[in-house]
Computed example of a mutant assay.
Amino acid sequence: MYILPRDVLVALERVVADLQEVGRDIKPESLRGATRYYIEKPGKMLRPILLLTFSYSLDRRSLMDPRVLQAATIVELLHIVSLLQDDVMDKHDERRGAKTPRVIYGDERTVLASDWLIAESIKRAVKLGEEVVEYLADVAQRLSMGQALDLEGEREKAAELKTAPLIEATLVLPALLLKRRDVLELAKRLGASLGVLYQYSDDMSDEGERRDKTAEVTAEVKNVLAKMREVIGEAFTPFENLVNEILKRALQASLTVARSFIP
């Protein structure tokens, strides 16, 4: 049975509390409302959950590390940036059954809100070191290229860039912060494959059609998962269980539409 470790849930509560303070003092009020909209209406927090659970599997004491908690906050902030920008580019009037910020505050303020959150993410990332800043800048550039490909109708190519880089970051950041260079390349491979599978699942839930490469990407996830277990050992079990749950939901096309990822 899929169960998140209690320590991960406690760490997640701290991340949520940190997020709730973001942008409280922004003026004018309209910009504050657009910036905090998805913070006040949080999703399933999958990216922080991935980062925290992977950190826990690498070193159970790491969840007490402020840098790990900060990294979890940053990946969620960048995810919110992607939601705001996606709403504007795709002209979404609703998301999760509610009006989008662009409908309430307008496209202009929604774009400005995404700019503010990018700046906030940079300020936080600087505290984690130059290597983290450079890596996250690369993630942001790849996300931009993915969005551009999606706008041009190159959906197959976009799947590898539109969503995957930020999910990749949820595994790469713990490897960098906890100095686990031995798992860095595997973390990149697993994170990228999970990200592509997430996008495929999203497409499948929208269109009801499975992508041709779904089986191939699933096999890659399982292959890298097995290699990681060889390196990390029994401590890898919590994260392995989480990934297996993601695989199950992705193949059922229920991953992206789920309201919560906490059992």
Rank of each mutant, 00 (worst) to 15 (best):
M1W: 08
I3V: 14
P5H: 09
D7G: 05
L19P: 05
L19T: 11
Q20P: 08
E21V: 12
V22H: 07
I26A: 10
S30T: 13
L31I: 10
L31E: 08
Y38N: 03
I39W: 09
I39S: 12
P42T: 14
R47F: 02
L50T: 01
L50R: 03
S57P: 06
R61L: 09
R61C: 04
D65I: 04
V68Y: 00
Q70C: 12
A72T: 11
L77P: 02
L78N: 08
S82K: 08
L84F: 09
Q85D: 07
H92Q: 13
T100A: 11
R102F: 05
V103N: 06
I104N: 06
I104V: 15
Y105H: 14
G106M: 10
E108G: 13
T110Y: 05
V111T: 09
D115G: 06
W116S: 07
K123C: 06
V126S: 09
L128G: 04
V133L: 13
Q141I: 08
R142T: 07
G146A: 07
L149C: 07
G153L: 11
E156G: 00
E156I: 11
A164H: 02
E168F: 01
A169W: 02
V172I: 10
L173I: 08
L173W: 03
L173S: 01
K179I: 00
A187W: 00
L190F: 01
L194P: 01
L194C: 00
V196D: 00
Q199A: 04
Y200L: 14
S205M: 08
E209T: 13
T214A: 15
E216N: 06
V217W: 00
M228W: 03
V231C: 06
I232N: 01
I232E: 02
T237L: 15
L242I: 06
N244H: 14
I246N: 00
L251V: 05
